[in-house]
Simulated assay, not measured.
Amino acid sequence: MKKGTVVLAALLLAVTLGILFHHHQRSQRYAQALRLAESGDASGAYGILVGLGDYADARERAAGLVEEDPALPYRGAAKGDVVSFGSFEQDGDASNGPESIRWIVLERFDDRLLLLSADVLDGRQYNHVPFQDVTWADSDLRAWMNDDFFDAAFTPAQRGIIPSVLNDNADQSITGAPGGAPTQDRVFALSEQESVVYLSGGANRSDIGEALASEYAASGALTVTEDGTADWWLRSPGTYGFAAQFVDAAGTPVASGANVDVLYGARPALWIDLSEVGGGGR
């Protein structure tokens, strides 16, 4: 047998043994995941199944665990992470179904995460009536976020881990334009105070404040920069009662605001309750 043939045979044997060893490792990990799931350790099982990718029915089993406990993928999330939760039309092609929504984890308090959509998901008016005083409580944007968007973006099980929170809608910090009554919201726009906390400094404005508009959002009348970013609404009042604050396309909050009938981007925010096992409902 020629030397070259021997070397080739040795290489093929090494590759074959490597493949068999890798398959054996994955098989052992898969079996471990099944044991963990049976013992009630869903988090441990989920982590292994996700890591196995397309091995056997790992994806389907991981999805089944999430269906039973929608908070499962997010229990290890930390401030600054980007996670996927819910789905919404974003690529402008409705025929292929909605795309997963990416969220930035703005904060973690014990078993709750504050999320802000990583992208501008739609172009919306804060309110459709020009030069009419309005607060967040009665705005079109609030109605859209808590009704149309909420119903379209989340399954009944996912809705079960999105708590209704009491938002204190403070007056404008400079002129004192009224912020209106406190509101109970499942989904909301960030406030002036929250923009100060999370968008202070150049890095935060670049990493969090500056947001790309989805193809769907950009396909309408929304103004989008050459870089693909857009202005987006906050929920707090601007200088006057018929203005609302926003964050400009470069990620800088604008406290003076813009007229409420202007079309700006919508970046929903919400809390996820990690202690809840989703049971459906609004």
Rank of each mutant, 00 (worst) to 15 (best):
residue 238 G to D: 05
residue 40 G to N: 07
residue 233 W to S: 10
residue 124 R to G: 08
residue 116 L to D: 00
residue 71 A to R: 00
residue 279 G to D: 05
residue 85 F to G: 01
residue 56 A to I: 01
residue 13 L to H: 03
residue 75 R to P: 06
residue 56 A to N: 06
residue 120 V to E: 08
residue 15 V to K: 06
residue 26 R to E: 06
residue 279 G to M: 00
residue 127 N to Y: 06
residue 62 A to I: 08
residue 152 A to Y: 13
residue 24 H to K: 12
residue 102 R to N: 11
residue 197 V to H: 12
residue 173 S to W: 07
residue 151 D to N: 09
residue 133 D to C: 13
residue 3 K to R: 10
residue 66 V to N: 07
residue 258 A to G: 14
residue 243 A to G: 14
residue 281 G to A: 02
residue 66 V to C: 01
residue 111 D to H: 06
residue 57 D to L: 00
residue 102 R to H: 09
residue 151 D to V: 11
residue 7 V to D: 12
residue 149 F to S: 01
residue 153 A to I: 00
residue 233 W to Y: 10
residue 201 G to D: 06
residue 57 D to W: 03
residue 133 D to M: 13
residue 88 F to Y: 14
residue 135 T to I: 07
residue 135 T to P: 05
residue 122 D to M: 09
residue 164 S to T: 00
residue 80 G to R: 10
residue 231 D to I: 12
residue 167 N to S: 05
residue 233 W to C: 08
residue 158 Q to I: 02
residue 172 Q to K: 03
residue 127 N to W: 12
residue 141 L to C: 07
residue 282 R to Y: 14
residue 179 G to T: 03
residue 4 G to A: 14
residue 72 L to Q: 07
residue 86 G to S: 04
residue 220 G to Q: 06
residue 169 N to K: 02
residue 102 R to G: 03
residue 185 D to S: 03
residue 181 A to W: 04
residue 73 P to F: 04
residue 260 V to I: 11
residue 164 S to Y: 01
residue 158 Q to S: 04
residue 9 A to K: 12
residue 215 E to S: 15
residue 162 I to E: 02
residue 145 M to P: 06
residue 28 Q to F: 13
residue 42 A to D: 10
residue 231 D to R: 15
residue 260 V to R: 09
residue 85 F to C: 07
residue 104 I to A: 01
residue 205 R to L: 04
residue 211 A to M: 12
residue 36 L to N: 14
residue 13 L to Q: 06
residue 97 G to Q: 13
residue 59 R to C: 06
residue 99 E to M: 02
residue 73 P to C: 07
residue 89 E to T: 15
residue 205 R to H: 14
residue 269 A to Q: 08
residue 261 D to T: 09
residue 169 N to G: 07
residue 118 A to M: 02
residue 241 G to T: 11
residue 250 A to N: 15
residue 174 I to D: 11
residue 46 Y to W: 08
residue 91 D to T: 01
residue 193 Q to E: 12
residue 262 V to L: 13
residue 21 F to R: 07
residue 64 G to E: 04
residue 90 Q to A: 10
residue 118 A to C: 04
residue 30 Y to E: 10
residue 172 Q to P: 03
residue 84 S to C: 14
residue 215 E to D: 15
residue 33 A to S: 15
residue 102 R to K: 09
residue 45 A to E: 04
residue 40 G to F: 12
residue 4 G to Y: 09
residue 60 E to V: 11
residue 71 A to E: 00
residue 248 D to W: 15
residue 145 M to W: 10
residue 156 P to Y: 05
residue 257 G to L: 12
residue 56 A to V: 03
residue 33 A to K: 02
residue 277 V to K: 07
residue 138 D to W: 05
residue 212 L to G: 10
residue 168 D to V: 14
residue 222 L to V: 13
residue 277 V to L: 00
residue 223 T to K: 15
residue 74 Y to S: 01
residue 120 V to D: 09
residue 146 N to T: 10
residue 205 R to A: 11
residue 118 A to H: 13
residue 169 N to Y: 05
residue 105 V to G: 02
residue 121 L to Q: 10
residue 173 S to Y: 08
residue 19 I to V: 13
residue 25 Q to C: 08
residue 20 L to M: 12
residue 280 G to H: 03
residue 160 G to R: 00
residue 273 D to K: 00
residue 222 L to H: 14
residue 18 G to A: 11
residue 119 D to A: 05
residue 54 D to P: 11
residue 40 G to W: 02
residue 42 A to F: 12
residue 41 D to P: 02
residue 111 D to Y: 01
residue 90 Q to W: 03
